[in-house]
């Protein structure tokens, strides 16, 4: 197998793995339980998206995708900063306080 074929094959495998990572992260976004958990999962989703775009750049040899990946990183970082401020300003909601206590105690039970 030539180097180029191997590169193409591993790019395809990497795309598959990244799709799996997307799916797992989305489960965390759905489950929550709190807002910062979801923000964190969103950040993870962005970095998986960056990796996805970069792999596409290699697979298609169309390196303009690199610019897309870099700007996605910029937007993701700004989104995280903005969300962090929002989490700080909003504080804790009553429902979340209850579910946080529940989650913490269930974690202990499993252990």
């Amino acid at each position: 197998m030539s180097g180029f074929d191997f590169l193409q094959l591993s790019a395809t495998i990497a795309l598959g793995l990244l799709t799996l990572a997307f799916a797992l992260t989305i489960i965390r976004i759905i489950r929550g339980p709190s807002l910062p958990d979801r923000v964190l999962a969103l950040e993870m989703l962005v970095s998986t998206g960056i990796a996805y775009t970069a792999v596409l750049a290699i697979k298609t040899s169309f390196f303009l995708y690199l610019d897309v990946a870099i700007s996605l990183g910029l937007v993701g970082f700004l989104a995280t900063v903005a969300f962090a401020r929002y989490v700080l300003q909003r504080g804790l909601q009553r429902k979340e306080r209850e579910s946080a206590i529940q989650a913490a105690s269930s974690g202990k039970l499993k252990q």
């Binding site: 495998i13 990497a14 795309l15 793995l17 990244l18 799996l20 990572a21 997307f22 799916a23 797992l24 992260t25 965390r28 964190l40 999962a41 993870m44 970095s47 998986t48 990796a51 792999v55």
Partner: peptide, 11 residues
């Protein structure tokens, strides 16, 4: 890609 998957599993 493996690191990304592991990070998602960790999350």
């Amino acid at each position: 890609a493996l690191f990304s998957v592991v990070a998602a599993i960790g999350i």
